[in-house]
Amino acid sequence: MKTAAEIRDEIESLSAIPTLPTVLTDVLKLIDREDVSVNQIGDFISEDQALSARVLKMVNSPIYGFPGRISSINQALMLIGLGVLKGMLTGVAIFDVMQKTMVGLWEHSIGAAAAARIIAQKAGIKEVEEASVAGLIHDLGKVALGVCYPAEFGQCVERARAEQKYIFDLERDIMGVSHAEAGSWLARKWNFPRQLVEAVAYHHKPRLAKEAKKLAATVHLADALIKMTGFGFGGDPFVHPVDEEAWALLGLSDDDVKDILLELEDSISGTVLSF
């Protein structure tokens, strides 16, 4: 078995997920450059009709909380900021590879994005778009492990099904690292905002987060709630025990949770067009 350090090296050497379109790799590089303005980035994305259509479709869906209001990439950039856009672009662009990694993983991810946004609103978190993106990419590590170690990750998926276990535990047993660690390595390597890196790293253990405890707590609960609904598939159907500290940090009442569940079902069962 490879050591965690060797696995980390291999995952960090993924300059891009293999099937990512070149335009996305170029955009991600552009976002990291300090001499390029937000408008220039917006214009560059707008030149690729397929990518901008996907981003606008996503940003206008209830998952991101601006249903039907954003008509241009530049407008999206003004509202969500570059850091969040970077996460969103990655989430949108890994759609295809997510579908190949695990049937239902994309649905699980967009469901978690919607849940995270609604939880963040209820918990009084200002950066709701950041919460959505954190939910969208929280399982980035499953894609990384699936791409770098298809045989071992496939074994995790198969054993999780056959033995009715958490895939998180099997990843650690079989590969010595979890998708949370793998995802955070990749997110850090790709210069994602630190808050997003922490949310990915600690979505199973939010109390370990240092700077983004509330965001990690939000994704932790979003992951649980979306599993409760059975929407999508993240490798196993089991809710993890919800962390008491994370729960207390969010300060949600039973009525809040009831409201969140109702709104979540509206989000995942249809797209709202606001007039």
């Binding site: 409760m228 993890h240 025990p241 039973d254 949770v257």
Partner: peptide
């Protein structure tokens, strides 16, 4: 689906409450 989802959380109070709400 709900029963399966909560089949591994044991008697933890928060999860028991979430299961009830769900």
């Amino acid at each position: 689906v709900v029963e399966t989802a909560f089949s591994k959380t044991g008697g933890k109070a928060i999860n028991a409450n979430l299961r009830k709400i769900m």
